[in-house]
C-alpha cells in the first residue's frame, strides 16, 4: 500500500523519535511473528514453509544429487522464484546473488563430501508465494529451517574409491539418514541475512512495508555462528517508494547496526531452533 504524504510524514516523525514508535508497536530489535512448518515435502531432502503476519509466504525445498567432484564449480546452487517478478529481473538476480554469496562462503562443505570422487550437490529452491516487505529475510529464515532439517542418506559403500571404479551406494533405510550437523559432528547453524532499516539516528530490524517507504537507507547484515559476519551491504529496501528521504548513512550507525545484530540475533536463531523441536513433536498437516 502506498502511503499518502501526510501518512508518510507522520510515520517518519514517529520512527525518528528518541524512543521510536513503530506502527505495530514492536521494539526496534523485534521481528514480526512468524509461523513455519518443516519437512513436509516428501520428495525433498529438506523443506520448510514460513509465513509472516503481513501475508508474506515462502517455501524452500532442498534436494541433493550425487555429482563427480571435478564436474561442478560449486556444491550449492540456489534458485529463487518470486511471484510477480521475472526470473531475469534485477530484483530476483540480486536476491539470488545475496543468498548464493552468503551460503557458499559459510557452509560446512565437508558434510557434502561422500568419497574421494563423489559429493552431494545441494539444490536450494525458494519460492516466494507472496511478500510485502523486502523478501530477503523470509527467504533466508526459511532456508535456515530447511537446511537445519535436511537429511542425507547414509553412504554404505567405501569412502576411498581412488583405485576402484565404483559408484557410491546408499542405505535403503531412511531411518539411517543423517542431518547435516550429524555428519560433520559439529553444531551447524546455517547463516542468515537480516535487513536493518536506517531512519534518523535509529535502526530497526525487519522493517515492514510501511516502514520501508519512509526509511532513509537499508542495511543487510549476515549472521553465522553467533556473530555478525560479512557480507554486509546497503540497499534501498523499498521497491518503488518515493525516494525523497533516501539518503546516506553515518559511519557510526554501521558499527551500531553490527553491534545490534550481535546482541539480538542469537535470540532469532534460538526461536527458530525451538520451532524445529516443537515441529518434530506434532506430526500434523501443514494447513
Amino acid at each position: 500500500m502506498q502511503l499518502s504524504p501526510a501518512e508518510r510524514d507522520y510515520l517518519y516523525d514517529s520512527l525518528c523519535l528518541q524512543t521510536p514508535i513503530r506502527p505495530d508497536a514492536r521494539n526496534l530489535y523485534q521481528f514480526r511473528p512468524l509461523e513455519a512448518k518443516t519437512t513436509f515435502l516428501p520428495g525433498s531432502n529438506g523443506s520448510a514453509r514460513l509465513r509472516m503476519v503481513d501475508g508474506g509466504e515462502c517455501i524452500v525445498s532442498i534436494k541433493s544429487k550425487v555429482v563427480k567432484n571435478e564436474s561442478v564449480n560449486s556444491l550449492l546452487e540456489c534458485d529463487i522464484d518470486i511471484q510477480g517478478h521475472r526470473d531475469d529481473s534485477n530484483f530476483v538476480s540480486n536476491l539470488k546473488y545475496n543468498l548464493t554469496n552468503l551460503l557458499t562462503k559459510n557452509f560446512p562443505f565437508d558434510a557434502l563430501r561422500l568419497t574421494k570422487k563423489y559429493s552431494f550437490k545441494l539444490f536450494i529452491d525458494c519460492i516466494v508465494i507472496s511478500h510485502t516487505s523486502y523478501p530477503l529475510t523470509i527467504i533466508s529464515l526459511a532456508t535456515y529451517l530447511a537446511l537445519k532439517t535436511t537429511r542425507l542418506p547414509l553412504l554404505v559403500s567405501e569412502i576411498d574409491d581412488e583405485e576402484v571404479e565404483e559408484q557410491p551406494t546408499f542405505s535403503d533405510d531412511w531411518e539411517d539418514s543423517r542431518l547435516l550437523h550429524e555428519i560433520t559432528g559439529q553444531t551447524f547453524q546455517p547463516p542468515i541475512m537480516i535487513t536493518v532499516g536506517v531512519i534518523g539516528k535509529n535502526l530497526l530490524f525487519d522493517p515492514s512495508l510501511e516502514e520501508e517507504q519512509v526509511l532513509e537507507n537499508g542495511l543487510i547484515i549476515s549472521f553465522y555462528n553467533n556473530k555478525a559476519i560479512t557480507p554486509i551491504s546497503n540497499m534501498n529496501l523499498a521497491l518503488n517508494a518515493n525516494k525523497d528521504n533516501y539518503k546516506g548513512i553515518d559511519q557510526s550507525l554501521i558499527i551500531s547496526a553490527i553491534n545490534m545484530v550481535n546482541k539480538y540475533c542469537s535470540a532469532v536463531i534460538h526461536a527458530l531452533d525451538t520451532l524445529i523441536e516443537q515441529d518434530d513433536e506434532v506430526d500434523g498437516t501443514i494447513f
Binding site: N106, L219, Y224, K227, A228, I229, T230, P231, I232, S233, N234, K247, G248, I249, D250, Q251, I254, I255, I258, N259
Partner: peptide, 27 residues
C-alpha cells in the same frame, strides 16, 4: 561534501569483524 555520508557499502571476506578495526578501515 555532505558530512561524509555513506551512500554505498559492501564488506566481504574474512569473518572476524572487530568494531575498532572496521571503523579504521572505513576511515
Amino acid at each position: 561534501l555532505k558530512n561524509d555520508e555513506i551512500v554505498g557499502l559492501w564488506i566481504e571476506g574474512s569473518n572476524d569483524l572487530d568494531n575498532e578495526v572496521l571503523n579504521g578501515l572505513i576511515t
